[in-house]
Amino acid sequence: MSFPAADVVSDINLISRFLACPQILSLSSCAPFDVLVFCASAVLPIANNVFSALQSRPGLTKTLVLCGGIGHSTQLMYEAIRKSRRYGSLADKVEGLPEADILNLILQNFYPQLCEQINSNTLQLLVENRSTNCGANAIETRRLLEQHSVPVPKSLVIVQDPTMSLRTLASFSHTYADVFPPPTFAACPTFVPTMSLGSSGIRQGGPDLRFDVSGIDELEIWEHGRFFDLIMGEIPRLRDDDHGYGPKGKGYIAHVDIPAEVDDAWARLKLVFHSKR
């Protein structure tokens, strides 16, 4: 079954914005907050965005948590480092490291002013390198904060790969559900992935699509097939039904309302991509 290429692009961008959950898009202009949790991603421009903002805005947060162990996508992070024009010099040092330790290596080698903040104790750095999924990101972060006697934060900002930003936010809400009043959580994907039609508009096998993200080279983000797999796989996980991750299903996340237009877009794209999810 075929759909107009422009409609495919519209559906992709609708789902992408929903999953990114851009409550905070810029760390350069937002209000300060208690804790910043940075969940590792193979999309390395996110690291530059986060560390540059923290470096230029001392006092933006009191505690920085670098989050991520060794999981199914860690190899992609190794490959991204090897290909990176900015961080490629670290390629021989990252193999075998948990994702949070890779982020710390980037921080220590490329952001000296941020290191000064940490060394002078104006910024607390915690490295959580055990978690392997969004739910564990939240659980292990809370455990680490409590272990270091960090008070329950009033405000906590979560930086995550835009394709998993909403689910990670829901994971933190679930993990802190027993706390009253709960922290104020906000998702900061740093950018929303959008696509547009390439110059040909259509090519053999489907629409000619390209990423259209200001300031980020397409080669620095996802391969198209992986991106489509990620966004298509997220909607079933977010559903609050027998098969989803919500309270009525596996109970990994807080309830998420999925707008009808997002569900409809997902159903159309499922036919386009012949997804089996």
Rank of each mutant, 00 (worst) to 15 (best):
E223Q: 15
E223H: 12
H224S: 14
H224G: 12
R226N: 15
R226K: 14
R226Y: 15
F228H: 15
D229E: 15
D229I: 11
D229P: 00
L230A: 15
M232V: 07
M232K: 00
M232T: 11
G233K: 09
E234R: 09
E234F: 04
I235A: 11
I235N: 02
I235L: 14
L238M: 12
L238T: 01
R239I: 00
R239N: 01
R239Y: 04
R239G: 01
D240W: 02
D240N: 13
D240F: 07
D241T: 09
D241F: 05
D242L: 13
D242T: 08
H243P: 00
G244L: 05
Y245L: 06
Y245F: 14
Y245S: 02
G246K: 08
K248I: 06
K248R: 13
K250D: 04
G251F: 05
G251K: 05
Y252P: 01
Y252I: 06
H255E: 13
H255R: 12
H255N: 12
I258C: 10
I258Q: 10
I258V: 09
A260I: 12
V262I: 13
V262A: 10
D264T: 14
D264I: 11
A265K: 07
W266L: 07
A267N: 13
A267E: 14
L271D: 11
L271Q: 14
V272S: 04
V272R: 04
V272D: 05
F273W: 15
